[in-house]
């Protein structure tokens, strides 16, 4: 995949092992595109956010303007979940008496504490961002969480789809039986003519389908893995790529980070030799997937000035 090809995509995901440089790559990629004139939204889906750190300013759960053409957001799962639960409690209040509301509130709060809530909340916000009608951005760049989290995020729509599919099937069975019974009972017929639940379920299914099609049909999106030229990094990346493939999701490119260049110490010459071997392995394993190389720099990367200098399209 060439860099020009990436520029045709609307959603660009940066994934990879913890500490491999996802935030650095996504932030510099977004910044450089914004300076070329594209309207860019940079989204962090990692609960342990680092966009704030790299841009040296507070970025929160609301879209915030970093500079001309560049906006950023850090999804806050706790905040999103709280917002969601509040909305549900309010719509329940409209339906039933306050006594029942109190009773149910307890159950909702228990659900709020159950495992998987943060993950679900992130995914829900993720759908919202991708699904936004009249999206003002040319491109949305995602700085994702370390591999494990991201694999879950990417395979979530498939799981949710099969769950909702089962629900729809069951609900239709109920409705069909009620229809049969209603041949005798007029009042029942009116009740089932338009089932609000089926409509809600189908609306949900559509959203899950949409996200999956964005991830699978690569007309609109591309996934880039960032890795170090290190043994464990190579293995984890290869595993992640093959797992995603099983779910019908292709990884489009990889960027190799922290490459040793000018070396004059004995210790580092040894490291460089090992790295050379690893680089060869990466080249045979990932071949034309490689889209960029980033050298090991003498200083840490943070702030717009250093981000600007990282241009993976300039490397060999």
């Amino acid at each position: 995949m060439t860099n020009e090809k990436i520029l045709t995509k609307k959603f660009i995901f940066f994934a990879g092992k913890g500490g491999s440089g996802k935030t650095t790559c996504s932030a510099s990629f977004a910044l450089n595109l914004a300076r070329k004139g594209f309207k860019i939204l940079l989204v962090s889906t990692d609960p342990a956010h680092s966009l704030s750190h790299i841009f040296e300013r507070k970025i929160g759960s609301k879209e915030i303007k970093i500079e001309e053409n560049l906006w950023a957001i850090e999804i806050d799962p706790k905040k999103e979940a709280r917002k969601y639960i509040k909305k549900i409690k309010e719509s329940i209040k409209e339906v039933v008496s306050s006594v029942i509301v109190e009773e149910i509130k307890k159950q909702i709060d228990t659900a709020f504490l159950s495992p998987g809530v943060e993950e679900s909340a992130i995914f829900d916000k993720f759908i919202e961002i991708m699904d936004k009608i009249g999206n003002p951005y040319d491109k949305i760049v995602f700085d994702t969480a370390p591999t494990g989290h991201t694999l879950r995020l990417f395979t979530f729509p498939e799981l949710l789809e099969s769950w909702i599919e089962r629900l729809i099937e069951r609900r239709l069975q109920v409705i069909n039986l009620m229809k049969m019974a209603s041949k005798v009972d007029e009042s029942l017929r009116k009740k089932i003519e338009r089932d609000p639940l089926i409509e809600l379920l189908k609306k949900r299914r559509e959203k899950f389908l949409l996200v999956r099609s964005y991830l699978q049909n690569k007309k609109n999106s591309c996934i880039i893995f960032v890795l170090d030229a290190e043994r464990l990094s190579i293995l984890e990346t290869a595993d992640a790529i093959s797992l995603l493939k099983k779910h019908g999701i292709e990884v489009d490119g990889i960027i190799i980070n922290r490459i040793l260049t000018k070396i004059n110490s004995k210790f580092f010459s040894k490291r460089k030799e090992i790295q050379k071997k690893n680089l060869d392995e990466i080249k045979t394993k990932f071949k034309e997937m490689i889209i960029g190389y980033i050298p090991l720099l003498e200083s840490d990367i943070y702030g717009k000035e250093s981000l600007e200098k990282i241009k993976f399209d300039k490397f060999k």
């Binding site: 969601y84 549900i88 998987g116 829900d124 949710l160 769950w163």
Partner: peptide, 16 residues
């Protein structure tokens, strides 16, 4: 239920 978060969305239709 791993999907309980998303199930809550349908709760208002079932509270009664």
């Amino acid at each position: 239920n791993p999907f309980s978060y998303f199930a809550l969305e349908f709760l208002p239709l079932f509270v009664e």
